[in-house]
């Protein structure tokens, strides 16, 4: 895959609610809150959203904000304020009017298919760079085609901020795609402590998901200092935070337990966490 196609695929995944599978490129989509723990009444938080090689270093592509949503502590949707797309990053603000935890997320998924024509040519649905219309899946994908493989894919990108004490109501899993079900609250992370996160695929424990945790600021050191983990039989990982700072978490899962007509399902989940020192 050429660099430009890779970028297109990533940008596409970030701005639409449907997506083809994320290529395993070094480019990462992320939303970075300026702060995650707030103590004032009626507080405001600013965010950056971008796609880049170096985590949290916006020097490549701004992330489209059309698909970014916010769930407040009362379960209501909260609007983005002052949304703006720059050359290398998008920014927006949130007004935290109520105390509790807010989930900022972008999620999507759908069916993808590939097959071969009778002449042996490879075909994909949706086509490269095309915006998929789920309604057209049945008419555009020949179900009797040679080597037909249909995959159910999901992607989700999240971060969390809390005004006052942490609450759980915004953290409830939707039961669709690969999701994080916090055991340790995502705004209660401290250096030297161990946090437990559970991963779910379509609401069930995602066993054997590959998880990577990378501290921010990688451009100021020689190695990624990546922490690699695999979810256990309950879908859990335990992360001991080496130091305070912002962290990027990336999880990938796949199996063949898809709902028909799909024969495989794939999920990707990424999130930004802030780890504080005590």
């Amino acid at each position: 895959m050429t660099m430009s196609k890779r970028v297109m695929a990533l940008g596409f995944a970030a701005i639409t609610t449907m997506s083809v599978s994320l290529p395993t490129a070094a480019h990462r989509a992320w939303i970075l809150p300026v702060s995650t723990v707030l103590s004032s009444e009626d507080s405001w938080v600013s965010f950056d959203a971008a796609i880049s090689n170096d985590i949290f270093h916006p020097d490549y592509h701004a992330m489209g904000l059309d698909g970014v949503q916010v769930l407040g502590p009362d379960g209501q949707s909260v609007p983005l304020q002052n949304a703006s797309k720059g050359k290398h990053r998008s920014t927006f603000d949130l007004n935290l009017k109520a105390r509790g935890t807010y989930k900022i997320y972008s999620a999507g998924g759908g069916l993808t298919a590939r097959w071969e024509t009778e002449e042996g040519e490879r075909r994909f649905w949706p086509g490269r760079g095309e915006r998929p219309d789920p309604e057209k899946f049945k008419t555009e994908v020949p179900m009797d085609a040679k080597s037909l493989r249909i995959s159910q894919s999901s992607r989700r990108l999240e971060t969390f901020v809390t005004a006052g004490g942490p609450t759980d109501s915004a953290l409830k899993p939707t039961g669709s795609g690969l999701e994080l079900q916090p055991v340790t609250h995502p705004n209660d992370l401290y250096a030297g402590e161990t946090a437990t996160f559970r991963f779910l695929i379509d609401g069930e424990p995602a066993v054997g998901a590959e998880v990577s945790v990378i501290p921010g600021g990688s451009r100021y050191r020689n190695s990624q200092e990546e922490i690699k983990l695999t979810t256990d039989a309950k879908g859990n990982i335990a992360v001991t935070w080496p130091q305070a700072g912002m962290y990027f978490l990336e999880a990938e899962y796949s199996d063949d337990k898809a709902k028909a007509p799909a024969t495989s399902r794939r999920g990707s989940y990424t999130a930004t966490f802030e780890v504080l020192s005590l």
């Binding site: 723990v37 103590s39 209660d188 401290y190 020192s277």
Partner: peptide, 17 residues
């Protein structure tokens, strides 16, 4: 109140509630 959280340990141990 904006800076109460900067007393990080106090905030975590109970100030935030």
């Amino acid at each position: 109140e904006k800076w109460l959280k900067d007393m990080r340990q106090w905030w975590r141990r109970g100030g935030r509630s």
